[in-house]
Structure formats: structure tokens, C-alpha cells
Design a protein around this nucleic acid. Structure first.
Lengths: 331, 331
DNA sequence: CTGAAAGCGCTTACAG
DNA sequence: CTGAAAGCGCTTACAG
């Protein structure tokens, strides 16, 4: 029953060759004689051999695993965004035999990730949703570990990242509102100490100016539903006919506030969100919103990471994707 | 810069002891002399030593990693349920230094998982959402690998699983509807070839009978939003004042159909869902629903799994959790 | 309580 | 193209 697993040694014995040759066949080294290869392959399948990864890792100095690091707040974990990232990463690393290890950073620091890296259990790391103050990106790059960020870092630094063109997304929203006849724009921004918050506001402002519209109303939110509601309340008494909310979740908080004020959406105010997350579909009315190609972005992150694991000397890169507009009933 | 990482050997040299002694200190073996231990600890911290996990795995025959296996359909991945599972598992395995590896089963089979297991990259596996026909549970248990299922298997088999008392959840819903004055119950079931679908229907029927209510209306759904809408349409022309929908997602499909028929919720029909997933909060009106203690259940899965990794001789166990009712505006 | 030594299962120069 | 041999960095009986 629980007999020891088959080793390379055994396969070699059955095939009547050296361990080195079996190893070469297993790893697809091209120089092996065709006939010998077949003998070995037969021995592998009759013995049911599977290579022990720990032994291989020990000599190759490769864990064969990359980490996906999420902030522990739960927010991210329960966000469909997370699932989309996983869907994007999987298809690129799996064919390479690379495992995806999930890590959440503990409040007390990042000991988990750092340990996994120091113990060589992780060849590289994809970092999701780091705050500006997060020391982890620097910690890891300084340790010479391949790292890819899921967004532009707050402060410029030498690091590889993938992002969506946030400003272009905001512009998409404004163009659409203008197209629908809006002349008095307003926005509920994200937190302005986050790159996404900053960039979406900048894109909004630039597009508003480009269309020759009056100075827009701007209130700051924090990407949460409650923050959206609070921001919408601060808009009470103001006059506007188009509202760009920098995240769908905030929009679901803002919508009821508008309704209570007697404003109909989209008749009196047209609303556009950002993210195309599930709340956008479920809220009433369903939300027109800016969508990021998250799966594609995640696949690109994986590709960049794997590349840097293979070739640590590769220079940093940043790849920026174009957002798209998803039109629903709120506009 | 990229100098070789510190090894046990080096620490031993610095501390003036043997590798065996350093190993014992690292692994917390109690029998080491107090003074020696301190010397070694100092050497570890001055050298910045971190044990190489591949080397350890090779001799201990433990990967130090468990797999979380999800069906590849995307459904699960984008479901907040998934995030809740991860939140539950993490706190129990992390302090043990065990990694969580994410795997989705490929449509063509389960080669990924099976390979990871055969290569000893995974010590055990948590299986989420397996269908009745899924060969994976049997495949893995026959290979003598510790496995924990996230639900009762469709066909009885010798396996460890954690579940919620589905029937009790349905009964909770019925009791609540009756409490709110409903006398004519109806239900939209899950797929009846799935344990959850079966058990929720059984619990519903038993509770209806217990309350002495008339024979209820029963239409089968499939746990999807569209399935919920379709089922609700099949209810057209029927008279009922309480509707138990076997998943929140189906309820979000059913709600608009009821509204189009001129039925007000909760005035004309009271509706109770199942899962307490995010759609329950976002739909209109917010849904009264049956909640599973997913985080607790996931933590228990992790505990059972780890236990079986340590002691493979442990007999199978099944743990069933009690559901709770979350009351919102739909009832 | 501590150390010398064997061994875990691979890969990879190095010869030939 | 193939094999003998060294070595990756640990743990763990086994003596003492």
C-alpha cells in the first residue's frame, strides 16, 4: 500500500541505463539517443515514476512556485477582482509546472512572505493592492527577488508593474457622459493618497477641460460603499447632471443617496462607475462602468514574473492596458 | 549582492558546533543544552540563516504545502465563497509554516493535482465543489493522500468532509416564513443531482409538513441567476405567499420576474435565499437568507487535513455545522 | 546532551 | 551520446 515512491534509481535499473540518462529523458534534453529514450520512457511508464520535486529544487535552486500576495484586510479576498487575477495567472504558469501559492500579509508585517522567500520556497511574487507605505516591494526587490506589482507604485521606484490606464478610463467615462448630454459634471474620487485615486481624478479633470465644460464638483471618497454614500451626501444642494464615481462599490453607496434626494438615475443624473465589479451588475439601476482587462493584466504579470525568474538580469518593465466602457442603464 | 544564501554548515562553523546541533536548535528539539542553544541562536541571527525548505522536504518527505482545489468553471473563483474559504484556512495553516497552493482542475481531467501529489509537492488537498461524477476524490484517497471535501459526497464513500446542515438551513427558512404569516409555500430548488440541492429540498419539505401547511410548489433550478429566473417564470399563475430559493444567486434572478408579474416583495410574497453571498446584500430588496459559517467550516477543513497529514492512520471524520438565518427586507 | 556519518532523490559538470 | 561521481542542504538514527 504505502510502499515508497519510485525513484530515478529504480527507473535506471529497469531501463538498464544510468541515472543521468533517465534524468535527461525526464527533462527533455535533446541529445539522448532515440532508442535509448524509448527504453527509458517505457521504464518510466511501467514503474509509474514521478520525479520528486524537493530533490530537483534542491539542486536547481528553483522552488517552482510563485506567490500571490494579498493584503489581509479581507476586502481583496472577497472581491471578485481576486478571482479574475487567479484566472489570468493560472493558464500561464500551469503549463510551466509552476505552483501558485496564496499568501495574505499579516497585520504585524510581512513575515510570512519574507520567510517563504528566504527559505527559497518562492521564486517570485505578484503583489496586489499595496499601499504607498507598504515596505514589502522594496524589501523584496532589495533581496533581489523577482517582483511584479499589480499597479503603479505610489512613489516612483525601480520595479516591474502592470496597470490599466486609469486616466484614460476616467476620460472614457467623461466622454460618455458628455455624449449623453451632460453639461455639469461631478465626481466622487478614490482616496487621493492612492495612485488609482489620483490618476482617475486627473483623467477626469483633463477630459472635462478638453470638452470645455465648467469647473467640476469634486468630493473625495475612499473606495468603500459607505465612503460613496458619505461623499454623495456632501454633494447635496449642488447641481450636476453627470456623476463619475471612481469605483462601483462607492457607486452602490451613492445611488440610494441620490434617490432619497429625489434625483432619478439616469433621467436627472447619469452615473458612471469604475471596475465593472459584481455590484455594478446587481445594483439598481445596473451601472455603466469602466472595465479593466484584469485577466489579461494578470496573465501579463505572470509572464513578466516568470521571465524574471528565468533571467534575473532582465530590466524592469511596466505594461499599461487600455480600459473599456461597459454601458448599462445608469446612463 | 547575489552571494549564496547561508547554510546550516556555515552557522555550525560560526557557532563552533556540529550541523546536527544547529538543526536541533532550528527545529526546537528540547534536549539541547541551554548555553549551546544560545550560542547557536546568536550565530543564526548574525549570519541571517534561513533553512532551505527543499532540503528539509527531501529528508522529511513533507512538502509543507496543501492544495486548495477549485473547479475550473470560473464560477467558484469569482464567488465570494472562495475568499471566505481562504480566510478560514489561512490562520490555521500559516502558524504551522504550511503553504496554501491554489489549483483549478483543468477540463481535460485532473492532471495538475495528481501530478503535484505524485511529485510530493502537496501533502494533502481540500476539494471544493466537486460534482457527483468527479473521480478526483476517489483517485486521491486511493493514492493514500489526505483529502478533505467541502461538502458531503453525492454517493457515500470513505472520506473526510465538512458540511453545513443543509436541511436545517431550509427548515430555518420555512420557520421564518411561517413566522411572518406565510401559509402557501413554494421553493426554487438547486440541481437535484447535487447533495446541497437534495438536502435543502428535503429540509424544506419536512419543515412544511411539520407546520401542517399544504403541499408546497416545487420547481427545480440550477443555482444560477438565469436558472432562478426561469424557475420563477414556471411559477407564473401559481399562488404562493412564501418563496424559499435555494441560493441567493437564483433569488436575484427570480426577484425581477416576480416584480414583473406585479408581485411585491415582501408585501405579497416573502422571499428567503440561501448562502448570504454578496448578491443578497446588493439586490433589491436585500435578501433574507440562510448563512453558512464558511470561515469556521474552512478552518475545520484545514485542521482535519493537517491532522491527517501528521497522522495518516487517523480515521475519516465528518463535521457538520449549523446554519443561521440573516433577516433583511425581502421577508 | 552532542557529533560523525549516512542518506533523502535529484542534476550537472567532467571525462570519455 | 553516456556514465561515474560529486554535490545540493538538510535530518536522523547511532554511538558515545
Amino acid at each position: 500500500m504505502d510502499r515508497r515512491p519510485v525513484t530515478l534509481e529504480e527507473v535506471a535499473r529497469v531501463a538498464g541505463v544510468s541515472r543521468a540518462t533517465v534524468s535527461r529523458v525526464v527533462n527533455g534534453v535533446a541529445t539522448v539517443d532515440r532508442e535509448l529514450r524509448q527504453v527509458v520512457e517505457r521504464a518510466i511508464s511501467t514503474t509509474g515514476y514521478a520525479p520528486n520535486r524537493a530533490a530537483r529544487s534542491l539542486v536547481t535552486r528553483r522552488a517552482g512556485a510563485v506567490g500571490l500576495v494579498l493584503p489581509d484586510e479581507g476586502r481583496t479576498l472577497h472581491d471578485p477582482y481576486f478571482g479574475r487575477v487567479v484566472s489570468g495567472v493560472m493558464p500561464v504558469i500551469r503549463p510551466l509546472g509552476v505552483q501558485l501559492v496564496l499568501t495574505t500579509t499579516d497585520p504585524g508585517g510581512h513575515q510570512e512572505v519574507v520567510d517563504d522567500v528566504r527559505q527559497r520556497r518562492l521564486d517570485g511574487v505578484i503583489l496586489i493592492h499595496t499601499h504607498g507605505a507598504d515596505p514589502l516591494p522594496r524589501l523584496l526587490t532589495e533581496a533581489n527577488l523577482p517582483v511584479v506589482l499589480a499597479a503603479r507604485p505610489l512613489r516612483p521606484m525601480a520595479i516591474t508593474y502592470v496597470d490599466v490606464d486609469q486616466a484614460a478610463g476616467a476620460a472614457l467615462a467623461v466622454d460618455h457622459l458628455v455624449d449623453r448630454g451632460c453639461r455639469r459634471p461631478a465626481t466622487i474620487t478614490g482616496p487621493l493618497d492612492a495612485p488609482a485615486g489620483q490618476d482617475r481624478l486627473r483623467g477626469f479633470r483633463e477630459a472635462v477641460a478638453r470638452h470645455g465644460l465648467p469647473e467640476p464638483l469634486v468630493v473625495e471618497g475612499d473606495f468603500s460603499r459607505e465612503g460613496g454614500a458619505a461623499a454623495a451626501r456632501r454633494l447635496a444642494g449642488e447641481v450636476f447632471d453627470g456623476l463619475f464615481v471612481a469605483s462601483d462599490l462607492m457607486a452602490t453607496g451613492a445611488l440610494p443617496v441620490l434617490r432619497n434626494r429625489g434625483l432619478r438615475v439616469p433621467e436627472d443624473v447619469k452615473v458612471v462607475g469604475f471596475d465593472d465589479s459584481s455590484p455594478a451588475v446587481e445594483c439598481d439601476p445596473p451601472l455603466t462602468t469602466v472595465r479593466q482587462p484584469v485577466e489579461d493584466m494578470a496573465a501579463e504579470m505572470a509572464r513578466l514574473l516568470v521571465e524574471r525568474v528565468e533571467r534575473p538580469d532582465r530590466p524592469n518593465a511596466s505594461v499599461v492596458f487600455a480600459p473599456t466602457l461597459v454601458v448599462r442603464r445608469s446612463s
